[in-house]
Amino acid sequence: MAQDSNGGKRDDHRPRVNPILAHLEAIATGIKWLTRKPMTLMYPDMEEKRPEYFRGFIIFNYDKCIGCSLCAQICPPRAIHMYRVPGDKRIRPGYDAGRCIHCGLCTDICPTDALDVSPVHDEVFEQIESMDFDPVEWHIISKKLVEEHAKRKRKLVITRVDEEVGLRYEPVE
């Protein structure tokens, strides 16, 4: 008989289980859970509703920008750099989406609201290089993303914690 460190028999402080009943109980539990519904959020078809000022991809309006470079100064991960654009007297911000931590400080400090936060957070880029935008590219992709997000028809849901199912998703309008 196996001995534990206290010298007592190992079986003494273990609950006795009926081997046959325990197996039947385990299988019955499995079958019970088989009838439960999955609690997966079917993400690309269904999405959680974002709050109003959700900080996603930073969008840039070239026409409002005055080239003060405050955004580049405040940016904590240095995702924003100032570029010289041919045919433009002022320097303009460029954006490295791979470095961005979505803190939103640049949008707060921008004196003309040329920078703004958007609810877009799941844009996919195939290459690391394609995540680095110069000012003109940033302006173009911002417009594109905002338009695409407005067109998107995903079911919006709110997640609720439910004691019965675990997680429940309520549709919202």
């Binding site: 499995g30 859970w33 088989l34 439960r36 999955p38 609690m39 997966t40 079917m42 675990g166």
Partner: peptide, 13 residues
């Protein structure tokens, strides 16, 4: 599918 259901997942979809 069954293993997924027991773990409240969806499985192949």
């Amino acid at each position: 599918k069954m293993a997924a259901r027991v773990q409240q997942r969806v499985g192949p979809y």
